[in-house]
Design a protein around this nucleic acid. Structure first.
Lengths: 281, 281
DNA sequence: TCGGACGCTTGATCTGGATCAAACCTTCAC
DNA sequence: GTGAAGGTTTGATCCAGATCAAGCGTCCGA
């Protein structure tokens, strides 16, 4: 099984295949515009290339780090798809995030010098390993890097707040729709299609992330399909057919008419999105 | 009503009453050992006093900042009790944290230069206002401050992951018990009693935080009392009577025998905590 | 080509916690 | 004191989503 720590597996075998990619800097990285560089003042970018990130390929199932491992590095996703999960004392686990290219992993390890969750590849991909001490050494000279680092951690805090609110207040339909729209938005930011994408994770992983069972996720997706809001092919291939109504569903207080009882809603009962929502800048 | 922004209310009226407290530095702060200073190398502490935090009194109901307000400062709680909450697009809200002395508020604002939640005082208290730009200016000279700031934000990320897992996987009894034990731990760190404390928040706020209704919170607390695991006086005054069994409850996979059907459990059916839990460093 | 593992869908049933409702404290202003 | 407003408890009922249980699709290695 491939759930060994990535370091034990890769560090011994892959030096040759990384040699080439280490050589070129961040400029060549497909996620650079979403990644660190974005926050760094132009005249300081030369510093950045000095960091010479280690780049590594990972395979589906590889573990970037385990909960409890000594913290040393932050990871930037170059390609592929990852999940993080925390293990609870009672043996259950909970998926806390899905990560795609340009996103970062490992901030959880800084506080206690120990990772607080597992990070696992859901498909083959490539990551940059950013040595934290070296990063902070650089940041001590380049203030814009410190500031950008703070911004990224802050956004992570806000992202988690949103999920807490989702888990604490939304019912199943809304959770799933919100999840799909969030994926859509992130694909769009990466100039992929916002309305047609592949789910890289299983129904069980989605359910776990959203605080639902896999059966409930499956049923909600089925209902959304019946209602012609989304299309599903081969289970994993999703097409958003009516983003406006999906948005309305994710924003609106529960509206049982829209998705009740496993049935599509007769046209006559469909409602238009209502007026101004709560202001929140 | 006192839900105005603290700045509009205080900045015009309180300059005189703050004059004295601004004068003395962090050394006199009751929460200094839990607060920033802890992470700052001894020989650099003099820098710290240069920051000369603005200190402010707040009253129950005061709002430190609103969602959407322009971000300028981080807040350190010196005394009192605070909650943060996010407002959702559908009009609901969700309580995302409770804060006590020595804890910090406002990291959510760094990423977008705008606070992403409301921060509200649950009782009268006092806070330090830490101007972010000035802080970062100092951090650019004192690396240990940068590092400590990262550690604090990382711990916030980990804290939120724990809550996500709680909201995603635990049933009501466990949520409430976990909540009580978390409060107990934090009181203990502050050298207050770990087993006897006042709940500063309402049942509704607890329920909202835990993803439950106020009725469910009330019932669980009632059951815990009936089971002699806790004592409750005047609704708000909690005594933890059997911390070991409470811990077992919060750690263990659901054990319907322990707290079922609103009844205390006959001695014969009480179980001892089982062997080694999942390792997680 | 087959078989088996894994993931997904769908149906039937159950139940924990939500909801609705009422009464009871506690606090506080007058 | 009295009364009103909030907050809390408790009971009765309901229901969204969990659980249990087949059966199906798809992928992949032999």
């Amino acid at each position: 099984m491939s759930f060994d720590n990535i370091h034990s597996r890769l560090s011994t075998t892959n030096s040759f295949q990384c040699a080439a990619s280490i050589a070129d800097g961040c400029a060549a990285c497909s996620s650079s515009s979403l990644c660190w560089s974005a926050g760094i003042a132009v005249d300081e970018k030369r510093w950045f290339d000095n960091l010479k990130f280690t780049r590594r390929r990972v395979q589906r199932g590889d573990v970037l780090y385990h909960m409890g491992d000594h913290f040393e590095s932050i990871y930037a996703v170059r390609s592929g798809f990852f999940k993080t999960r925390v293990l609870l004392e009672d043996g259950r686990d909970h998926v806390t995030s899905f990560r795609m290219n340009g996103e970062l992993l490992g901030f959880d390890g800084i506080g206690s010098q120990t990772y607080s969750c597992d990070a696992i590849a859901l498909e083959d991909g490539e990551i940059c390993i950013i040595h934290y001490q070296r990063l902070m050494h650089l940041a001590s000279k380049v203030q814009s890097l410190s500031l950008e680092l703070n911004r990224m951690m802050s956004r992570e805090i806000v992202r988690e707040q949103q999920i807490m609110a989702l888990l604490g207040t939304m019912q199943a339909d809304k959770r799933v729709v919100t999840f799909l729209l969030n994926l859509s938005m992130r694909f769009n930011e990466r100039h992929y299609s916002a309305t047609h994408f592949i789910l890289r994770m299983t129904r069980e992983e989605i359910g776990n992330y959203l605080g639902l069972t896999l059966e409930t996720v499956s049923r909600v997706l089925g209902r959304l399909q019946t209602a012609k809001l989304i299309g599903i092919e081969h289970s994993k291939e999703i097409t958003l057919l009516d983003v406006d109504r999906l948005r309305a569903l994710s924003r609106r207080e529960s509206d049982p008419l829209l998705l009740a009882n496993n049935l599509a809603v007769p046209m006559a009962f469909r409602r238009q999105p209502i007026g101004p929502q709560l202001a929140h800048a």
